[in-house]
Amino acid sequence: MSGIASITSAFADDTSPKGALKIGVIGAGWLGGTVAKLWVKAGHHVMFSTRHLDELRRKIAPLGPNATVGTPAETAKFADIVLFAVPYDALPQLGAALASDLKGKIVLDACNPSATQVNALTQEARQNDVAETSRRLLAGTRYVRAFSAVDATAIESSASRQTQKLGVPIASDDQAALNVVARLVIDVGSVPVITGNLASAKVFQRGGPGFRANTDAEALRNLLKLPANT
């Protein structure tokens, strides 16, 4: 057993996997970089990708050998799980260019359309919901909406404390992928709050009650009117 099958199996009983996971982060800026660093500290092998690779190499050098740098194409090939944290307008090109390497892999989407920019893509996202639009752009993947509604500072703060952990809303139509992502949320020192299927992600997209709530898991569940321990 290898790749996604072994990862899914490892999380099936809600326990941590025996070995480190290979994770790619495309868009290693404020949010992506914060999450990626915490995954490295949790013991995972993480490849960071951004437009300024030389600068990024210098920044992640203190993280040790589990942190590497690559182009988006190299990152998609390397990883079994990929987080996208890029400007929303970059998703169509990246989704098309990386389609063959992303096929069948768990993909976390933390990208949000601009609040002010108006173009065909943002109009589609507003009409059809962001998650559904992103899933179309990342077709063929095991798509999970995650880390899109929280700030990097809130994630860092949660990782440094023992109580009142940050609630991170996540949603997907792929239950096994959702279970994996839930464990990865725990690995950055936060608490996964599963809202339900992908359609439920609307409650934490921009304009929804869960967007940038940046509160603890219990408060977030109450805000979203979810049962306890989701």
Rank of each mutant, 00 (worst) to 15 (best):
M1N: 11
I4N: 08
I4L: 09
I4K: 12
T15H: 04
S16Y: 03
S16K: 07
A20T: 10
L21Y: 00
G24E: 09
V25I: 08
G27D: 00
A28D: 09
W30Q: 15
G32H: 01
V35E: 08
A36G: 12
V40G: 03
K41I: 05
T50F: 01
H52P: 12
R57D: 14
K59L: 01
I60L: 11
P62A: 07
G64R: 13
N66V: 00
N66L: 04
N66Y: 00
T71W: 07
A73R: 05
E74R: 11
I81V: 06
F84R: 03
F84C: 02
Y88R: 02
D89C: 02
Q93M: 12
A96N: 07
A97I: 10
A97M: 05
A99C: 04
D101P: 15
K103L: 03
K105Y: 04
I106V: 14
N112F: 03
S114P: 11
A115K: 13
A115T: 12
V118R: 14
L121K: 10
T122P: 01
N128C: 02
L138E: 06
L138N: 02
R142H: 08
V144W: 06
S157N: 11
S160F: 00
Q164S: 13
Q164I: 00
Q164A: 15
L166Q: 10
V168C: 09
Q175M: 09
V181E: 04
V185L: 10
D187L: 00
V188C: 01
P192C: 08
T195P: 11
T195Y: 04
V203I: 07
F204W: 14
Q205H: 14
R206P: 10
P209Q: 07
T215K: 05
T215I: 11
T215S: 07
A217G: 07
R221W: 11
N222A: 13
N222L: 00
